[in-house]
Design a protein around this nucleic acid. Structure first.
Lengths: 246, 246
DNA sequence: TCGCGCGGTTGATCCAAGTCAACCAGAAAG
DNA sequence: CTTTCTGGTTGACTTGGATCAACCGCGCGA
């Protein structure tokens, strides 16, 4: 059943220049005068309720989205129902880049909690990027960063064992929470064990067991979705521990 | 030991407009008049001998590369020596996009055979993309396509079993050879079993065994690197066969 | 307040892929 | 022509993570 998602066509100017997500989002690294020109770019904001899609596979592509509030997962589905979570996105991160290539979205973007995004109409973005050099450059960096991130996930999926994957995941989350001004050592995961498992190429039981083992070893304190990292360097060591076996 | 790679600073104009790779490469979908403007973009060509790097992790990023002749692999290395092959690239495909985000390359690009690339200085590309709308759009599509491709690999690594991964790999190679005017059913792989394994998140023995099983089942004829696909739809079926188990 | 259901944990067992090891074939070097 | 080396195949055995199943506990709605 298709639910129409409320669209706030707020005539709000100053979308970017007054946003405190600046240094995490598309405008990062742009000069103030250029950022002011971005304000005209963000046409509207859109609220997405928990578990609802921002877009779905094969939806026509018209815009990319900057997360203002909340968080998302992206996933691809195989015909037989298998799901692969391809990423988790937090405030300031950009969603929808997958759609540019075919002008259809190639994955689903689902809100992990009640969220809000800035809608950036793609045609407008290209137009403005031709005029504002800083925007062009930043946009390319955002896409490139996504490619680099994906390579990291491939490394994770292709070459690491279960505990290494989870350790890498936790350190990555910690680092991203830090960048947003939250605690590096204590945070709340928005996704289920199953979603973490899908992202890491593991079953939820394996994720759960790895969490328990980390807890036993005093690396983290886990209470459901609430995580406290007790031994950051222990987790880091875990990722490279293979070194001694070669 | 660092080997200086020969750089042909050919003053050859008409780089793109006379290239028969057109419809596979960056200019795909651009109008003729725009393509002619691309000619000034391709500064030089560069030959890379088999096994030699086009660029390496943490090399400064200055240009992206279009493959004219030959093929490459890209990989990332972990401190402990583990290698993850992140992709195999053929003629017309673009290398180096990973470098835009940090202005340092984040992977190694190694020639699988004696190869030649067109060097596209990145600063020049951005400049021209601001003027030539078609170029801008194409370039974005190329980056987006890379992101979508990466998501496919994640699906492969995260959710598929060994034989499914190899089947998907073979079908993908077949499809890309076809696009280049070669036979869809008979081709020569340029990479070793170990490289295929690294790409697919498997050990070379597992790759070898899967090849043998495919051969036994009459799906393909394998003779070292020479592959003949005998039952294309059998391979396709294999990828989705999980459906019946749900 | 109680009961229900979803998400999470834990245990027992199984199996796909990894590991280790021997061997083979073709290409390159002497 | 023989030797060597690299890449590939195959077999025997091991193992990490999947599977199956029971159970727990928190949060929510009646």
């Amino acid at each position: 059943m298709m639910v129409t998602v409320p669209v706030t066509v707020a005539g709000l100017k100053k979308a970017c220049s007054q946003c405190n997500l600046l240094e995490l989002c598309l405008p990062f690294g742009m000069v103030d005068s250029d950022i002011r020109r971005l304000d005209e770019l963000v046409g509207a904001r859109r609220k997405i309720k928990r578990q609802q899609p921002l877009y779905r596979t094969s939806d026509p592509f018209e815009a990319i989205y900057a997360i203002r509030i909340g968080s998302f997962k992206t996933d691809v589905l195989l015909e037989d129902g298998r799901e692969q979570v391809t990423g988790f996105q937090m405030t300031g991160e950009i969603l929808g880049l997958d759609g540019i290539s075919t002008e259809l979205h190639s994955c689903n973007a689902i809100a992990l909690e009640d969220s809000e995004v800035c809608v950036i109409p793609y045609a407008k973005l290209e137009e403005l990027a031709r005029i504002v050099e800083g925007l062009q450059h930043q946009f390319h960096k955002v896409m490139s960063r996504e490619i680099v991130r994906d390579h990291g996930v491939m490394m994770l999926l292709g070459s690491m064992r279960a505990e290494e994957r989870l350790a890498a995941f936790l350190l990555n989350m910690s680092q991203r929470f830090t960048a947003r001004g939250f605690s590096a050592s204590e945070f709340h995961l928005r996704m289920t064990r199953e979603e973490i498992g899908s992202y890491l190429g593991l079953k939820l039981e394996t994720v759960s067991r790895a969490f328990s083992r980390f807890q036993d070893e005093g690396l983290v304190a886990v209470q459901q979705k609430h995580i406290r990292i007790l031994d950051d360097s222990g987790l880091k060591r875990l990722i490279q521990h293979q070194a001694c076996m070669r």
